[in-house]
C-alpha cells in the first residue's frame, strides 16, 4: 500500500481521493494510539507538577502571591538551597574527576576483560542508592563500622574529632558511590571516541603531550565532561532517600525541608512554602538539564565526524 502511494507521489500525480482519505485515517489512528500515554502522563505526572508550580504562587485561600517564593529564598530556606547546591557541586565535581581518572586509567590498561567488569559494575552501582546504600556506609564508617574499628586498631580514631558520617562530608563520601559510576557510564563512550589518529597527527606535527591535551584533546572533551558534570549535579540535587536515612533531617537540604513540610512537622500556615521550595528545585534541575542538552548536541557534532 505505502509503496503504491509513494510511486504516485513520485510521478507527480495528485493522489486520488480514496488514497487521501485512507492516509488521513491512518494519521488519525496513529495519534489516537498515543492517547492512553498522553492521558496517563497528564493525570499522574502533569497534574501533580502543575499543582506544585501553581500553588507556589498562591496563598492558602487561593489568592495569587509571591510571598511563598520570597520566603523560600530567605532565612533557613535560603540556607538549605545553599547547602544543597554545595553538596551537589562538590559531589558532582569530585565524581567527575574521580570517574574521569578511573575511565582514563581503564582505557590505558587496554584490558578488555577488565573493561567488561567495570562497565557492568558501573551500571549496577549507579543504580544503587537510597536506604540500603546508607546502611552499607553505616556498617563501614558508622560509629561501630568495620572500617572505623580497623582504623581504631591502628591508632586512628575518625570519631575523635568533630567528623561524623552523618554530616556534610559524610554525605559527600556516600554520594560518590553512585556519582562515580554514573560518570564512568557517561564519559566512557566519549573517551573511547578519542581517535588515535588525532594524537598521532599532533605528535607528528611536533606537539608534546601537554600541548595535545591543551589544544586538541581538552577542547574536544570539554563538552562531554561539562555535560556529565551537570548530569551528576542534577542527580545529587534531587536525591532524598540517602540524605534522609543518614542525617535524619539534621542537615538542611531542600529535599529534606520539603519532606518535613510534607509530613506536617511544621506550623500550618507554612503549608504552601513546600510548593515554593519544590518550584525552586524544578527551576534549578531544569536549568542544569537544559545546559546538559546543549553540551550533548555539541559533543555529538564533534564525535560524529
Amino acid at each position: 500500500m505505502s509503496n503504491l502511494t509513494q510511486s504516485t507521489v513520485a510521478a507527480g500525480v495528485r493522489p486520488s481521493r480514496a488514497v487521501r482519505r485512507q492516509r488521513a485515517m491512518r494519521r488519525a489512528r496513529n495519534v489516537a494510539g498515543l492517547f492512553p500515554f498522553f492521558i496517563y502522563t497528564m493525570i499522574f505526572f502533569g497534574a501533580p507538577t502543575v499543582m506544585v508550580v501553581v500553588k507556589a504562587f498562591q496563598d492558602q485561600k487561593g489568592h495569587w502571591t509571591l510571598a511563598n517564593v520570597a520566603e523560600s529564598i530567605q532565612t533557613v530556606y535560603f540556607d538549605s538551597f545553599v547547602e544543597s547546591l554545595k553538596l551537589s557541586f562538590w559531589s558532582a565535581s569530585t565524581g567527575t574527576i574521580v570517574g574521569f581518572a578511573a575511565t582514563y586509567a581503564l582505557l590505558k590498561t587496554g584490558n578488555a576483560w577488565l573493561r567488561k567488569i567495570v562497565q557492568t559494575a558501573a551500571g549496577v552501582f549507579a543504580n544503587t542508592g537510597g536506604i540500603p546504600l546508607a546502611f552499607m556506609f553505616i556498617a563501614a564508617l558508622g560509629t561501630y563500622g568495620m572500617v572505623t574499628q580497623w582504623l581504631q586498631k591502628i591508632g586512628i580514631d575518625i570519631y575523635g574529632g568533630r567528623w561524623t558520617l552523618f554530616g556534610f562530608s559524610g554525605l559527600l563520601i556516600v554520594y560518590l558511590y553512585f556519582q562515580i559510576p554514573l560518570m564512568v557510564i557517561v564519559i566512557l563512550p566519549a573517551l573511547d571516541a578519542q581517535k588515535k589518529e588525532w594524537r598521532e597527527a599532533a605528535t607528528n606535527l611536533g606537539a608534546s603531550t601537554r600541548q595535545y591535551w591543551l589544544h586538541v584533546g581538552g577542547p574536544i572533551l570539554f563538552a562531554p565532561v561539562a555535560g556529565a558534570f551537570l548530569l551528576l549535579f542534577a542527580n545529587a540535587f534531587a536525591a532524598y532517600a540517602t540524605a534522609r536515612a543518614l542525617t535524619s533531617g539534621t542537615l538542611p537540604l531542600v529535599p529534606l525541608q520539603i519532606g518535613s513540610l510534607l509530613s506536617g512537622n511544621v506550623i500550618a500556615d507554612k503549608a504552601n512554602l513546600g510548593f515554593a521550595l519544590g518550584f525552586g528545585m524544578i527551576v534549578i534541575v531544569a536549568i542544569a538539564m537544559s545546559i546538559y542538552n546543549v553540551t550533548q548536541k555539541r559533543a555529538a557534532k564533534w564525535l560524529q565526524s
Binding site: 497534574a47 500553588k55 532524598y240
Partner: peptide, 25 residues
Amino acid sequence: LVEFISLQPLVIPPIVLVLGVVNVM
C-alpha cells in the same frame, strides 16, 4: 514529543512529584 515527556521524570525530582500527588489526587 513522547521522548521528551518520558524523560521529564528525570527533571522533576520524586520529592517534588510526591508533593503534588498528595495534594492533587
